[in-house]
């Protein structure tokens, strides 16, 4: 059995989730507390991947990253990076594609905290960063977990964007979702079934874990 597409999928999902965590916390913080007039625009942009067909996103990435265009050409000539049909391209596309799944839970977690917590820390002379790190984030752990898991699971499940921008290169861009499609086209139902079953079982376990943790069902075991 060829495990490569599955491994590639989890590599992609892990890396994407990791990078997303660093991007999403400041972004969610800004969205939760800013009174800027730009906020609705940024909020809309962050949420766009929820409603856009993945192929639309993939199509524009393809155009933007293509070495035939100015940006893609500049990337290739100056930085020697090719984002089309490459793993790094997939990571960038996945980050944008899964962004709302990470940002939204963190943003609503922060917004739901009483503002007096933040204010109490400020009055004690604590900086914004210390307040975020020591007071706000520890009190929205369930939201962080939800964000991490949703972003991970959503990246595992992406298909359209990968197909458009990554193609189907074994070991580089052929993730499990693509491999399933490929095997079905070639009438290898047994292999397709193997990949599908693994993805199904894993997604089930991950989501179940979130519900168990956030619902407090596991607490009785370590208390």
């Amino acid at each position: 059995m060829n495990w490569q597409p599955l491994l590639l999928t989890f590599q992609l999902a892990l890396l994407t989730t990791f990078i997303l965590l660093f991007i999403s916390i400041p972004l969610a913080y800004w969205l939760a507390y800013s009174k800027s007039r730009l906020k609705p625009i940024i909020e809309t942009l962050v949420s766009m991947p929820l409603v856009l067909p993945p192929t639309v996103l993939g199509f524009y990435f393809l155009i933007a990253f293509s070495p035939n265009n100015a940006f893609g050409n500049w990337l290739k000539n100056t930085l020697d990076i090719q984002l089309v049909f490459s793993f790094s391209g997939l990571v960038i596309a996945s980050i944008l594609y899964s962004l709302p799944f990470m940002v939204h839970p963190i943003q609503s977690g922060l917004a739901a905290l009483p503002s007096s917590l933040k204010e109490a820390a400020y009055v004690m002379g604590k900086s914004r960063f210390t307040t975020l790190w020591r007071v706000l984030l520890p009190n929205i752990k369930p939201s962080l977990l939800t964000g991490i898991v949703l972003a991970f699971a959503h990246t595992v499940g992406e298909f359209g964007v990968v197909l458009m921008i990554g193609g189907n290169i074994p070991g580089e861009t052929k993730v499990a979702a693509i491999a399933i499609y490929d095997e079905v086209e070639a009438l290898n139902y047994a292999t397709a079934n193997f990949y599908s079953a693994v993805l199904f079982a894993l997604s089930f376990c991950i989501l179940l874990l979130v519900y168990l943790v956030n619902g407090g069902y596991l607490k009785r075991f370590w208390k």
Binding site: P114, S116, L117, A120, V135, N139
Partner: peptide, 8 residues
């Protein structure tokens, strides 16, 4: 604060 604002 009125709601005490203790860090949970």
């Amino acid at each position: 604060f009125q709601d005490y604002a203790l860090f949970p």
